[in-house]
Write a protein that binds this DNA or RNA. Structure first.
Length: 320
DNA sequence: TTCCAGGGGTAGA
DNA sequence: TCTACCCATGGA
């Protein structure tokens, strides 16, 4: 159980890092590409177009980062403000830069997807102008826990579970009274979740997901499962999917969602949102089987997930 | 009060 | 592979 300091505000320092983004790049459209932007310890501030996040670099070493757009359309960059105690080492700065590049997928080649969007019609054309890099977490573990917390629950329930998980088990930041400052703690490590006693985990109110989340944390903490290794491109998508489906609490929806986070868009995450949207747009509101519903995006090949995502996104846009 | 959500595990066919 | 049933929790 995390203990919170009671000594008031500590002195923090601020260091700025910048990192290059690919062309084309839409910063706000990337950071606020889906709900992960507002799941703690992330916070999206639409008034300033910045994303803030509490990030743990190691034992007792937690910093606050602020991501903002920099550069221009020819040479886009991401500015990362780091608030930290003591001195930020070069190695720590490099770790943060690497995490930001993972979160915004700055090294992912989306040119084939953007080309498909240009040919797919006006509905998708906007995505070709720098979108498609759906925000993710620095670690696959965080994405996996968050994904399990999206199953069989409304979005408000997901936000609540993650907020409580961070509050109860996360490590506080460089200000010694983060609760007073209103800043979230860092996302809890697998070790902390695995070691949490039952009554502590009960406070998070994960429902029947609690044993799944504990088991996954134990497997990762013990080294039995190396989730970050799944980001390596050499394994086949089928092989990665089998490993994901072997995680208790991960079924076909969650596996497809996690494959998306791993940069593999072959599988569609068919959930109630998908079914509602596809039946209403393509089947006149009549219920169809999941395989029929999946067939809608067959032409998108290995980009099915993103093809659907921007179809849905445009659909939501039309409703407003 | 009942239904069901950004589903999944398990048992039994 | 498919179906039925159960699973905590909390909005609507």
């Amino acid at each position: 159980m995390t203990q919170r300091g009671t000594m008031g505000k500590a002195t923090t320092h601020r260091t700025e890092i910048t990192t290059a983004a690919p062309v084309p790049f839409d910063f706000a459209g990337t950071v606020y590409s889906h709900g992960w932007a507002v799941l703690e310890p992330n916070r999206w501030h639409p008034d300033r177009s910045v994303l803030t996040r509490t990030e743990r670099l190691g034992p007792g070493r937690v910093v606050y980062v602020t991501l903002a757009s920099a550069g221009n359309s020819e040479k886009p960059r991401v500015r990362v403000g780091v608030e930290h105690g003591g001195e930020l080492t070069r190695q720590e700065a490099a770790t943060i830069r690497r995490s930001v590049r993972v979160m915004l997928r700055l090294d992912e080649d989306l040119r084939p997807f953007h080309e498909l969007c240009r040919r797919a019609g006006p509905r998708w054309r906007e995505a070709a102008a720098g979108l498609g890099r759906l925000i993710r977490s620095p670690t696959v573990f965080e994405d996996a826990i968050k994904t399990i917390c999206t199953t069989n629950v409304q979005w408000s329930g997901t936000k609540g579970m993650i907020q409580r998980l961070v509050q109860v088990l996360g490590e506080p930041g460089p200000l010694s009274a983060p609760a007073d400052a209103g800043l979230p703690a860092a996302f809890p490590t697998p070790e902390v979740i695995a070691a949490a006693d039952g009554s502590t985990l009960d406070q998070v109110r994960l429902g029947y997901r609690a044993p799944y989340i504990r088991e996954l944390s134990e497997r990762v903490a013990s080294g039995d499962l190396d989730l970050d290794a799944l980001r390596e491109p050499d394994a086949s998508t089928e092989e990665v999917r089998r490993i994901l489906l072997d995680i208790k609490g991960v079924g076909s929806y969650a596996a497809a969602t996690l494959l998306m986070f791993l940069g593999r868009y072959d599988y569609l995450a068919i959930d109630s949102v998908y079914r509602t949207f596809v039946t209403s747009r393509y089947f006149g509101g009549h219920a169809v089987s999941d395989s029929e519903a999946a067939g809608v995006y067959a032409d998108w090949g290995r980009w099915k997930y993103l093809g659907f995502w921007f179809d849905l996104w445009k659909g939501l846009d039309e409703e407003v």
